[in-house]
Design a protein around this nucleic acid. Structure first.
Lengths: 222, 222
DNA sequence: CTCGTAAATGACGATATCGTCAGCACTGGC
DNA sequence: GCCAGTGCTGACGATATCGTCATTTACGAG
């Protein structure tokens, strides 16, 4: 979401609207659980039960189940974007920014498994979504290319390779619970950097530089 | 004349069993259509209608809808494997084999859009499936590594990057119908080859070598 | 405290989907 | 031509799911 500091459209959230938002959030979170489990056919009543919310409440917020699931995926993408924004201290070096986002996302699969599964389920669509990883990746890739640090002909191709690699990585980590997520992620990051034209030495350094921790994420809410 | 009917694994498909298989195939093909459209909740009656088959026939072949969909994805993976086997004339060079399979799969997105969409929908699971691309890719990757032509530490990581790239590519081609699929595929193939340690010159040559045509595929059956 | 409003609730009738079953159609053997 | 077998068929009762709505609960304002 674009930041608009001035025009604050939040005229002091009443307790009323806070309650409403909480109900909605509970539904969204429940839906994410079902998505993560692959339970896309769960009846509405089951979802509202899981959200600890009355059956009728569903229709106060969504018209159809698909709408809820869409909102759930959107929310997951937003959450992912928030992770990157929160932990990615701004760097003026787009290569560093790209590398850090990539590595953080790889680690996310273990740190936030439910989020990871929602992203995996939403599948290849997140590659071209305008939320979450994709738009940031494209931005950073273009910047890195413009600065001459990445020698890549087509940013879109670089983008789909990087995003696809992250999806594949997530699936691999899901299948092999004993694998070291950080090592695998950094290895792939290094390989991709080299593929994008960074020298082997620099790629190795960039992909193994210290990283802000993912531990200070607020997974649960009221 | 030297026929021993007993030990024959295919005891000469009767017209009866052929009819049964046709019914099943019709159901599977119909299911693939729905999967490609993202219509995972289609009622059984709709599916049997689309298959031009009586409603009750469904239960002669499958217990649940999920079972049918699973069979549909399996069939798509098999079909994909068949493409690779049919058009991939055996080469003793694993690098060539790998490259050809990759490039053929990339072109498949345009040549067989429905198959492509089923693969995209089945999403990241095809990366670790034991059918279709994945097992072949792993086999060829290992062979290429063993022969010293690929300098890769971890075949599994190479595998998920390649498979993820193909998924991303498919999604990209879906979103950008005007893109040149062959050019994009070959570009990515070349980049991956370099990433796997092949020299730039060889990678370029391998990724742009002539390819058997996908045109002689038998998409429809009786 | 009282009132008006907005959201939450779950019971209920309407609808959609399921899965079975008894009869039908095609097949192969005699 | 007839019979036994196997799969196909669609109508039907059983069940599951939906979406509404009258009622209740929580809140904020005056």
């Amino acid at each position: 979401m674009a930041a608009d500091p001035e025009s604050e459209p939040k005229p002091e959230p009443n307790r009323l609207v806070r309650r409403k938002m909480r109900t909605r959030a509970a539904l969204v979170r429940a839906a994410q659980t079902f998505i993560a489990e692959g339970n896309l056919n769960a009846p509405i009543l089951e979802i509202t039960k899981a959200a600890d919310v009355g059956m009728g409440s569903f229709y106060n917020h969504f018209q159809t189940k698909d709408e809820l699931f869409q909102a759930a995926v959107d929310d997951a993408l937003e959450a992912h974007g928030a992770v990157l924004d929160t932990l990615g201290e701004p760097s003026d070096d787009p290569v560093e920014t790209f590398t850090r986002s990539f590595r953080l996302t790889g680690r996310l699969h273990r740190k936030a498994p439910q989020l990871s599964r929602v992203l995996l389920r939403s599948g290849t669509e997140l590659i071209t979504s305008d939320r979450g990883l994709a738009p940031r990746a494209i931005r950073d890739l273009r910047a890195a290319i413009d600065s001459g640090r990445f020698k890549v002909e087509d940013p879109e191709l670089a983008m789909v390779v990087a995003a696809g690699a992250l999806l594949g990585l997530g699936q691999l980590l899901l299948d092999r619970p004993d694998r070291d997520d950080a090592a695998a992620t950094d290895q792939i990051a290094e390989d991709l950097l080299r593929m994008f034209g960074v020298s082997a030495a620099k790629a190795n350094k960039l992909a193994h530089t210290p990283l802000p921790s993912l531990d200070d994420l607020p997974p649960p809410a009221p």
